[in-house]
Each structure stands twice: as structure tokens, then as C-alpha cells.
Design a protein around this nucleic acid. Structure first.
Lengths: 199, 199
DNA sequence: GATGACGCAGACCGATCGGTCCACAGCCCG
DNA sequence: CGGGCTGTGGACCGATCGGTCTGCGTCATC
């Protein structure tokens, strides 16, 4: 062994962390189990990440980055129609809720698991939510909403409800109403959505 | 000591559990700490509750019962106006989010902490959500909604979003839009709400 | 007052927690 | 080819986990 350092070590650890933390939650996965599933040694994990808390934070930051790319891909087809792009975000989240590897939103889950405001993981989770809010407000502004911030907040309400009820009810029930409800809200908030294909 | 059994033992334990689990989450509170704060011995706690998991479940069942009473009190003033009663439920939840001892909805939080479908605590939490859904659907039916189940699901969407974003954003932002949004949804779903005082 | 039964506080259990450290394996350089 | 150096897996650490069990203190009874 000891090949000279493997450059993808950090990514490997993050991939295992994503799978285990996402499926079982952070607190119920011990570092020993995580280390075992990477096939690496503990010392290596602790050299890449100073503590479990910071591993959680980096996992969430990476997930946030990946989310940004998916969100980009989901909204790109509707370039130039910001009202439709907002709805595309909700649709994209709805799709992820229906995926069979969905075990709850990692950001909301982490906030539920770590109550200390200063926890690095919780901070990263809150930062993600603020990013989503800013993105929605941006689209809302472009769509000519009278109150883009308020529209973003209202859509975040829907999105949060979609994610947490999606877990509790296994995708049935409340989750099914998220997209239509969001469409109605967007339609009502943006005076000039006549040209938008909001369904 | 050993007075001959104190009859309020169970309630005392549940009160401590409610405070600690509600504030810090279940997994981060050890039984030792809980026992210490009751002032009782461990054996007594384990005689009243067979395990931590079942203590969690009973705590949630009791919280569900208390919630039912609060909900009753919140809706009673609007007896005979079911549309307004639905909104009163949302208002009541919104108020609880703003309370300074709000640290997130214990039901959604517990679902986030325990992923195993068979966990007694998770079961109790899901049962509570289903109860809320049924209550909303009941009011929706009385209010003459065309699709009371769908209306209940949509309102649960709002309520879930209100609760989880209330935690993440400390009551600011999304939470502020829950009541108006719910009012609009109720108004639109119930054809004959002309007589209701939905604000 | 002595005695038996009961109820309970807390010592104790093995397992596991997050985190540290050591001993060895493989590489590079002389 | 040998000696140091580096990177690493896994043994190990004290603390704490959920849960058990025992020894003592306090009653009711005679």
C-alpha cells in the first residue's frame, strides 16, 4: 500500500459520508463505520477533515454545490422565462423527493439534528437555505414580482413543506400538491406571466 | 426517601423529557442526563419506560394530546365557521413558532432524527401528522371544499414549511407568509367562504 | 424494638462514541 | 543496496452511550 497519496481520498470520503449521512442521519453514523466503508484508515480521514463536525459541514457544502448545478440544469431550458424557472426549481425538488434514494432533505435534517447555532454543519445548512431564497428572489425580481423577497419566502414555505412531508408521507399526499400550489402562487405574484408556460 | 411511590413519577419524567428532547433533540440527550435532571434514579425511569425509544414515543403521544387541546382552544372561537377554523390552526402553529421556547417541531425533528420506519418515536410522529391531516380534511369537508383531502394536503404543505423554516430562519422570512398564503388557499378551495372572516 | 418486604438511587456493564497515536510498509535518495 | 522519510491502517484512549442490577434505606407489621 502507501502508494504515494491517492489524490481522490477526500472525494472518496465525501462520497461515503454523503451516502451514510444521507441515508441514516449524521448522529447515527459513527466515524468508525464511515472509516470502515471508505476502506481507508482513520488517520487519513482525520487528516482530511479535522473533526466529524467539519466533515458534516464540508459534505453539506459539496451537496450545496451539486444542488446548484442540478438547479442550473433544471432551469436552463426555461432561460428568459424567470417565472417558469421558479416553477422548474420546485419541480426539480419534487422529482428528488420521489427518487427512491430520497431520505429527507439533508439540510433540514441536519438543522433538526444539530441545535447549536454555531455548529459548522448547521451553519452550512442554513447557508444553503439562504442561497435558495436568494436564487428564488432573483428569479422573482426578473419576473417582475411586486415583492420578490416575499415571493421567495412563500415559495420556500412550499419547498420546505414539500421536503419534510415528502419524507413523512413517502411522497404521497402533501408532496403532490407542491407544484400546482407553487404555480398558482407564482402566477398570482407576477403580474405579467401571461407569456409564461406555467401549466 | 422511598416515601412509598410518588404517583406523579411518570409525569415528572415526561416533563423533563419534553424540555430536554425539545430543546436539544433526542439523540444528543443521554439517559444519564435525563435521569439526573429528574432527580430520580435510573431504575425508576426504566420501570416507567421500557427503553429510551418508548420514552420518546410516549413523549410524542403526550405532546400530540396536548396539541389537540391547544388546537381545540384555538378553533373553538370560530365554531360553525370551518374555513376560519382551518386558518385558526395555521395561526396557532404560527404563534408557536414565534414563541421563544420554540426549537423546531418535535414531530418533524424526530422524523429527521430516526430514519427507521419502525422506530416507535417515528411512528408516533407520523401518526400525529396524519391526525393533523385528518383534522384539516374534516374542516375542509365541513367548509364545502370540492377536494377536502387535497386542501388538507396543501395546508399541511404550508404548515410543514412554516415549522421547518421557522427553525432555520428564527421565525423571520418564510414563516411570516404562512398565514396569508393559507388564507388565500382556503378562500380559493372553498367556494362558499363569503361568510368567513378570513381576513 | 425487631423483622421482613419493598422501592429506589446510583454503581456498574459491555458497546460504541469521537479522536489520537504508533508501528510498519513502501518510496526516494545516497 | 541500505537508511531515512513519509504516508497509512488500525490499535488504542477516555468519555459516554443505553440498559441492568444490587445494596441500602424506609416503611408496615408484630
Amino acid at each position: 500500500m502507501a502508494r504515494r497519496q491517492a489524490p481522490d481520498t477526500k472525494q472518496r470520503i465525501l462520497a461515503v459520508a454523503a451516502r451514510l449521512f444521507g441515508r441514516h442521519g449524521v448522529r447515527s453514523v459513527g466515524m468508525q463505520r464511515l472509516v470502515d466503508e471508505t476502506g481507508l484508515g482513520k488517520s487519513l480521514v482525520y487528516r482530511e477533515f479535522s473533526s466529524k463536525d467539519y466533515l458534516v459541514a464540508e459534505w453539506l457544502k459539496e451537496t450545496d454545490a451539486a444542488w446548484g448545478e442540478y438547479a442550473d440544469a433544471a432551469t436552463r431550458p426555461h432561460e428568459g422565462d424567470p417565472a417558469r424557472q421558479m416553477l422548474a426549481l420546485v419541480e426539480f425538488i419534487h422529482d428528488s423527493v420521489l427518487a427512491d434514494d430520497f431520505y429527507g432533505c439533508v439540510f433540514y435534517n441536519t438543522i433538526a439534528e444539530f441545535r447549536d447555532e454555531d455548529h459548522p454543519g448547521r451553519r452550512a445548512a442554513v447557508a444553503h437555505l439562504e442561497r435558495v431564497r436568494a436564487l428564488l428572489a432573483h428569479y422573482g425580481r426578473d419576473a417582475g414580482a411586486e415583492d420578490p423577497e416575499g415571493l421567495a419566502d412563500t415559495l420556500l414555505l412550499i419547498i420546505g413543506g414539500l421536503l419534510v412531508n415528502g419524507t413523512a408521507f413517502a411522497g404521497k399526499g402533501p408532496a403532490e400538491h407542491a407544484v400546482p400550489t407553487a404555480a398558482a402562487i407564482i402566477r398570482q405574484a407576477c403580474p405579467a406571466t401571461a407569456g409564461s408556460a406555467l401549466g
